[in-house]
Design a protein around this nucleic acid. Structure first.
Lengths: 336, 336
DNA sequence: TTCAGCTAGTAAAGCGGTTGCGTAAAGGGG
DNA sequence: CCCCTTTACGCAACCGCTTTACTAGCTGAA
């Protein structure tokens, strides 16, 4: 590997000149420039990035913290971040934390220690406040998809309320009145917002919101299965369910089947996320599509702005859309 | 941020001593060590990793090239690589190439330019030979999941032949004799091996392998749908299909349904991969499970060996297993 | 007493860039 | 013709760590 010094010698200039020329910090007469260019290609010179980083004190890399890269939602989001980062000359250092606090901290320390210049952070673990307090000391951070309350960094979320509202309305429009909600963790921001959206939709139609038809738990299939099984066994089972995530919806679907009932014939179902598998199911799952890729791109852009000492918006909300498939139908024979 | 020099001064030793002490290259008398320790914690010293990297000429980071991180298979594999890497103190720089040659080359150049010390490489694009030729110049590379013929680097694959064989046998055992195969790209190593496994299984039972019941194309749902539609429209449609991937299987399943037939009643189906959604389907998809995480871990370990100047195995084959679900049944009423 | 052989360090030269000052030479205006 | 401004570049310090080569002082054996 040749160095900038060799290039400078071959072009009969100083390293200063070469460095400035390469970084567009100087305008050189054509022949000098040509000599440098010639030397560079003759030596096949490529700047040593490690030296450059030390000298500049930055890495031109960002971190990407995701709870679970194997989850298609986060994977797609990660892909979008990476794509946008690449487009701006940044590399992406990925960490899949598995919701593990230790790994989250390790990723944050990487930021502090200068492995990366900034961090796109996603977490789905409710915070006890300690993370929120310590976060500002780390540097450039952007929060995507899920909030950590009390943290003062740019945030990019989707319109959870509006989405939940649309999902519930879709069920109302189909004629349902006994609509249950199986939502995510009670402590999680997105789950809270989605619950609010659901409540508002019912409220707006003058429908009493029944505590008993609201379940909160993990955004997982297992929880969906368990919660739906309970609901179905209850005294006054719903004719429709708005699930807080597609995973929950799938679990619910299983529960419905296990009971010998069918979606959408006996029970209508709407999910949230529009995971890639949502349309593989039979029946295809009606759900709220999140602009996953846009979430990632916006996240990176906000981070970039931060790193360039600009001030990105404190909060960006991206719109969601209802995707109609086959899991919603009018309630059976009305009444009971 | 404090530097090693400040630590040295506070501990009244030289930077050399501090550096050696920190890197376990020297044994110090207890009181000297204690002074250094004290200085370090008093100053909250953390070594500047950029300086360290420049000095050592390595980054303690590896690259991870995947065709499509949004594909759950690669995502899970990536998670495993990252996990294993983290365990050994390495960071992971991820690139999702989308099968784009340019991005592949960019990722390779990152290796050459010293951004990373090694690369776990996955590609699903058939190579025209140019990649194979240029690959050795880049440095430490390990190939995972899919081969690039003619490349002399450690490789980690699964037992494609054995898996395909088991899948086909499972259909044979159920009583099928007209078994079609919808496989991956004809130029792709894994697809070739899976086809071989299918052929051998039929051959071993003395069943004529019919050219017309073999289709090759993308590992995608769309291709599965198209190919299966064709097969069903043919003169002598199969009663069972071994699909080269779960995506293909899903497409095939759609085609079966579109024709008013049912899986497994009219057509039995076996996939390959055991994607996370394989058991979400109704019926659950019988398929060949790949040890995805192990593929990732082994990949990293081989790379680590390479980077430590050890010599990992040229080729590692990981076993696959047949996962029985509900998409296989005996052929209908035998005969026709 | 002498000297080899430890112990416990140190000085300084890298690693390969970037950059704040500075300056020689050429050009131009008065 | 003199002085001031450009133009075109160079010197050397600096980023913070690692490592080679070396030494002062002590111990113990011959």
């Amino acid at each position: 590997m040749s160095t900038i010094l060799e290039v400078a010698e071959m072009a009969r200039v100083s390293t200063t000149t070469v460095s400035r020329y390469l970084n567009n910090r100087i305008e050189l007469p054509a022949d000098t420039a040509a000599r440098i260019d010639a030397a560079i290609s003759a030596l096949d010179y490529r700047p040593n990035i490690l030296a450059k980083r030390l000298s500049l004190g930055r890495t031109e890399a960002i971190g990407l913290m995701t709870p679970e890269i194997a989850n298609p939602f986060f994977a797609e989001l990660a892909a979008a971040v990476e794509d946008e980062a690449e487009r701006h000359g940044y590399s992406v250092l990925m960490t899949s934390t598995g919701g593990n606090r230790d790994r989250e901290l390790r990723s944050l320390r990487r930021l502090k220690d200068g492995h990366v210049d900034g961090l796109v952070m996603m977490t789905n673990r409710p915070d006890d406040g300690s993370l929120a307090k310590s976060l500002h000391q780390y540097g450039h951070i952007v929060l995507v998809d899920e909030d950590i309350p009390g943290v003062n960094v740019p945030k990019i979320f989707v319109e959870n309320r509006e989405g939940a509202n649309a999902a519930t309305q879709c069920l109302l429009d189909a004629g349902h009145t006994r609509i249950a909600h199986i939502g995510g963790p009670a402590a999680l921001f997105s789950a809270i917002e989605r619950l609010e959206g659901y409540r508002t939709a019912l409220w707006d139609r003058g429908i009493q919101v029944d505590r008993a038809s609201i379940r909160q738990g993990e955004y997982s299939r297992e929880f969906g299965l368990a919660a739906m099984t309970e609901l179905l066994a209850g005294p006054n089972p719903p004719t429709a369910v708005f699930a807080g995530s597609d995973f929950i919806a799938i679990g619910a679907m299983q529960a419905v089947r296990a009971r010998g009932l069918s979606v959408p014939h006996d029970i209508s179902l709407v999910g949230f996320d529009d995971m890639p598998f949502a349309d593989l199911l039979a029946p295809g799952l009606t759900t709220i599509r999140q602009p996953t890729a846009e979430l990632g791109r916006s996240g990176f852009r906000a981070l970039l702005a931060l790193m360039q000492k600009k001030t990105p918006a404190d909060l960006t909300r991206l719109p969601v859309t209802l995707v109609m498939r086959e899991s919603v139908a009018p309630p059976r024979a009305s009444g009971r």
